[in-house]
Computed example of a mutant assay.
Amino acid sequence: MKSRRDFLQKITVTAFSIPLVSSLTPGVLARSTSFEKNDKVLRVAMMGLGSYANRVADAMKDCKRAKITGVISGTPTKIKDWQSRFNIPAKNCYNYGNFDAILNNPDIDAVYITTPNALHHSQCLRVAAAGKHVICEKPMAINAKEGREMIEACKKAGVQLLIGYRMHFEANTKEVVRMRRDGEFGKIMFFQGLSGFIIGDPTQWRLNYELAGGGAMMDIGIYSINGARYMIGEDPIWVTAQEVKTDPVKFKEGVDETITFQMGFPSGAIASCLSTYSMNYLDKFYLNGIKGFAEMQPSTGYGPIKSATHKGRLDLPHVTHQTTQMDEMAAIILDGKIPMIPVDGEEGWKDMVIIDAIFEAVKTGKKVEIKYV
């Protein structure tokens, strides 16, 4: 595969040849939102039917406000399987070449994009042009420029753009953020984020620069970036970063294996983080303030999240993250609900601005000032 453009052309040609397939606090419940049976339901088409799409779809079986009503895929056998599992009619099944036709499909309100990172931008623009809301997995794009174009396209089309930040709805995470906002930790001084695992199959798309736009930082390091922002409650204004690569065959040019990075915030707080594809058991957040602390390990895994503060353990009840996420996103789109921690396009764009700065810091070896423009 010579370039991203080659891939996009290849997938489009292939797609056109595929026919349509026939046929919060301790003591309260983890899911604080109650939904009435007569509330409107968000009808969602899943785009890209890989492992994560399956995880989301299975979790949505327990949703009260969201349901799977359509699919978009380049693989006919996957479409057939999903039709059977979720009772999806043939008229709601599309491929990558013809999904613009969702414009005329009243059974679909939103499209959840779970394809490789490099495809998010073009697919988001097409979904927005079709008048459907966009839910896009993180990272929202491969750089901040693409992210901004996605935001503007959705604004122009009058649809919402939400990013799949499932942790923003997780009970332990929300409780720690509440405590920080209420001043229970005092002035925040330091955050540590450790995000990593040993990646397997060397041929997967996550290790292909043309599809992933990077390596571990795009996939797992973004959790520490985003976590630092919502735990501290600020956006960083500078970053320094260092890269270590022990296997240049597996981790080719542009595909980062391990990056350590440091961020500075307007209040003076600092963050020290690690993103890696070559070490296991790295899923930890630690927040330090002058009056107390919070720690979470695991902090962003599928759960249950384990958490504690200077006041004792939290470990609030576990609910499948994607179930809560999709019910809450339905409330955002259908009811105008404002989430405790943002999940809109601007939130995703800020993470891309920071990732761009981290890559620049790695390349130059210099401290990079971050400007959100």
Rank of each mutant, 00 (worst) to 15 (best):
S3I: 02
F7V: 14
Q9I: 14
Q9K: 14
T14I: 13
T14E: 15
A15E: 07
I18N: 10
S23P: 08
P26G: 08
D39A: 12
K40Q: 13
V41P: 01
R43F: 10
A45Y: 05
A45T: 04
A45R: 05
G48D: 05
G48R: 06
N54S: 15
M60Q: 08
M60K: 09
D62P: 07
R65L: 11
A66S: 14
K67R: 12
K67P: 02
I68K: 13
S73P: 01
P76C: 09
W82D: 07
R85A: 11
F86W: 14
F86G: 05
P89I: 11
Y94D: 04
N95A: 06
N98V: 10
F99I: 01
N105S: 03
D109C: 09
D109N: 12
A110V: 14
A110M: 10
V111S: 06
I113L: 15
I113C: 11
T115L: 03
T115K: 04
N117M: 11
A118V: 03
C124A: 10
V127T: 11
G131A: 10
H133T: 12
V134H: 04
P139L: 05
I142W: 05
A144G: 04
K145R: 14
R148D: 12
R148Q: 15
M150V: 10
A157I: 03
A157H: 04
G158M: 03
G158A: 04
G158E: 02
L162K: 08
V176E: 08
V177Y: 10
V177S: 10
V177G: 11
G183I: 08
L194P: 08
G196C: 01
G196S: 01
F197N: 01
F197T: 00
G200R: 09
D201Q: 07
W205H: 14
R206W: 08
A212D: 08
A216G: 08
M218R: 09
Y223A: 06
G227M: 00
A228K: 01
M231L: 12
W238N: 03
W238E: 04
T240N: 12
T240Y: 09
A241V: 00
P248N: 06
F251G: 00
K252F: 00
V255L: 04
D256T: 00
T258P: 03
F261R: 10
F261Y: 15
Q262D: 15
Q262V: 13
F265M: 02
P266T: 13
S267F: 04
A271W: 09
A271S: 15
C273G: 03
S278Q: 07
N280P: 03
Y281I: 06
Y281W: 09
D283F: 02
G289R: 08
G289E: 05
G289L: 06
I290W: 11
I290R: 11
K291W: 07
M296H: 01
G301P: 11
Y302C: 07
P304W: 00
S307F: 03
K311L: 14
L314Q: 00
L314V: 01
D315G: 01
L316G: 09
H318L: 09
V319L: 10
Q322M: 15
Q322D: 15
Q325A: 11
D327L: 07
D327W: 08
D335A: 03
G336F: 00
P339D: 03
V343M: 02
V343E: 02
G345M: 05
E347L: 02
G348L: 02
M352W: 00
A357G: 01
F359T: 11
F359E: 13
T364G: 05
T364L: 04
G365A: 09
K366E: 14
K367G: 06
E369V: 07
E369D: 07
E369T: 09
V373N: 15
